[in-house]
Nucleic acid binder design. Structure first.
Length: 513
RNA sequence: GGUGACGUGACCGAGUGGCUAGGUAGAGGUCUGCAAAACCUCCUACAGCGGUUCGAAUCCGCUCGUCACCUCCA
């Protein structure tokens, strides 16, 4: 049983094998930090969080790189290209890096809330200008890029003449692309071909974010950073490179061209993995369409199409309930259903403690409750154990099948039903061995908590519970039931709370001990 | 125009050439002081029309409908 992943490059599910086991290098194209993250921005990180968690579960040593794009995304490829970071900065009248830092902080906060473990390396594009310049120089040396007026462009037609195939990832031919080229691209006169893309852009006088380079002051093209940073931290060829489906072209296509055109001479990654989009009423969520749901707003609610707020864990569960390559549509109905399902799964987690607790040690129970067996003879749990192990195996079948979390979750619910049945009666409990039960309980816990990364979100209000407890305390005191009084006082003390009987009534304070 | 997806029961959403996905909602039941939870049962679908096949929702073709990428986008 091994993990297979759908590779966009080959358009097939392939068995995953690391290039250099046990190490696995994973790169996810991170956010451009010039505005608040929306739900769509969360899907990739959640999917790749589960992927890296699962790879680690399988025993691999994962190096997970998720970059921060804090420079270089042009508004357009035209000569008047404007940096998004600067645009946002100008609007807010602050330093561009301040904008980047602000949204980087927000982004990290949201990702942590969604249960995404911090990446092992989170490189910033602005911190890797030297590496990017080096890649450009390599491409120029290989004759695949040219300089015009302080800007450098990648020569796509030449690249293809050399037997490479720009378009191999997104399955396009350059003929088709040329045919589809629109008329309004006159501003690109610097480029030899409309297909060429910028590796380095000359900074106009008003451009703030600029760096010196062999071609004058400027800034890197927006596809370049990922190639440069992926190579720096994961080598010429990494195991997995991913992002949203909308990055497949042109971003990832350009990355491959850059890596092939540089000294790496590789496709940059063995597996190219793309998550599908999140839609609202069937239409892709995007900034340009204005139908996006900001994460911060969604957690609080209401916002946009949603009448209620949904906690980060509910959102995570909601996303994982669909396969990552399917589009997923957001709605109150869907999220509310997801919330109930999520809570059911969490209540299952709580049940596990009971299942494995002393009272339900099945071998003991069996001795007492099942028809007496001959001395030294064990009851037959073969069928029960087999069923239980099958339920557990199904969960992993789902995960292994292209990280199909939807199937894995469905299987978890089946396993949970079994747990509930077992917990209901001792007779049921006697149908399985404690070894098989422990295995299943451990598997459930591992998949829910460690692999899917779903944590329980406490919803009870501690102050309210304390208030209730104090009412019972007062009653017991009035009844002079001092044994109860002592129990309550001791229980609260163990929580660091002391009860103070005053003339005005019962009060409490945190213990000063 | 080019490229690529998709259309599953009330809703969300897996999967698949013959075998119950799962969650939510709804109905009935067991349990229960009431309730909840849990468990059991039921409602049981694959856009339409053809074709291939012993058998298709699953493969092929056509039709209708929806979406994405080709421009910044997760």
């Amino acid at each position: 049983m091994s993990l297979s992943l759908y590779n966009t490059l080959t358009r097939k599910k392939e068995e995953f094998q690391p290039l250099h086991p046990p190490q696995v290098g994973v790169y996810l194209c991170g956010p451009t930090v010039y505005s608040e993250a929306h739900l769509g921005n969360a899907r990739g990180p959640v999917v790749f969080d589960v992927l890296t968690r699962y790879l680690r579960h399988l025993g691999y040593q994962v190096r997970y790189v998720r970059n921060i794009t804090d420079v270089g995304h042009l508004e357009s490829d035209a000569d008047t290209g404007e940096d998004k970071m600067e645009k946002a900065a100008r609007a807010a009248r602050i330093e561009p890096m301040q904008v980047a830092q602000h949204f980087t902080n927000r982004y990290r906060q949201h990702m942590l809330g969604l249960g995404c473990l911090p990446p092992d390396i989170e490189p910033q594009a602005s911190g890797h200008i030297i590496e990017q310049i080096q890649v450009i120089e390599e491409i120029i040396n290989n004759g695949l890029a040219y300089e015009v007026n302080g800007s450098v462009y990648f020569d796509v037609p030449k690249y293809n003449e050399e037997g490479k195939r720009y378009g191999k990832l997104s399955n396009r031919s350059i003929e088709d692309q040329l045919a589809g080229t629109r008329a309004g691209l006159e501003g690109q006169s610097e480029k030899r071909s409309p297909l060429d893309f910028a590796l380095w852009k000359k900074a106009s006088p008003e451009h703030i974010m600029r760096w010196p380079s062999p071609w004058g002051e400027g800034f890197p093209g927006w596809h370049l950073e990922c190639s440069a940073m992926s190579r720096k931290y994961l080598g010429d060829l990494s195991d997995i490179h991913g992002g949203g489906l909308d990055l497949m072209f042109p971003h990832h296509e350009c990355e491959i061209a850059q890596s092939q055109g540089s000294h790496s001479h590789t496709d940059e990654a063995r597996f190219w993995v793309h998550n599908n989009m999140i839609t609202v009423n069937g239409t892709k969520m995007s900034k340009s369409l204005g139908n996006f749901v900001l994460l911060g707003d969604m957690f609080k609610g209401p916002t946009g199409p949603l009448a209620f707020g949904y906690s980060p864990m509910v959102v995570r569960f909601f996303l994982l309930q669909a396969h990552y390559r399917s589009p997923v549509d957001v709605s109150d109905d869907a999220l509310q259903a997801a919330r109930k399902g999520y809570r059911k799964l969490m209540n299952g987690l709580r049940l596990l403690d009971r299942l494995t607790a002393d009272s339900l040690s099945s071998d003991v129970i069996r001795d007492r409750t099942v028809a007496p067996l001959a001395e030294g003879k064990q009851p037959d749990t073969t069928a029960g154990d087999t069923e239980l192990r099958k339920l557990v195996a199904d969960v992993f079948v789902g995960l292994n099948d292209d990280l199909n979390t939807a199937r894995a979750i469905a299987s978890l619910f089946n396993l949970l039903r079994k747990f509930n049945t077992l917990a209901a009666t001792t007779a049921a409990m006697a149908t399985v061995s404690s070894a098989a039960l422990t295995e299943a309980v451990d598997a459930y816990r591992a998949v829910v908590s460690d692999i899917l990364g779903l944590q329980d979100e406490p919803r009870a209000n501690a102050e309210e519970l304390l208030k209730l407890t104090l009412e019972f305390y007062t009653e017991a005191k009035a009844e002079k039931a001092y044994d109860k009084v002592d129990v309550i006082r001791a229980a609260l003390k163990s929580q660091g709370i002391v009860i103070k009987d005053t003339k005005a009534g019962v009060e409490w304070a945190y213990s000063e001990e």
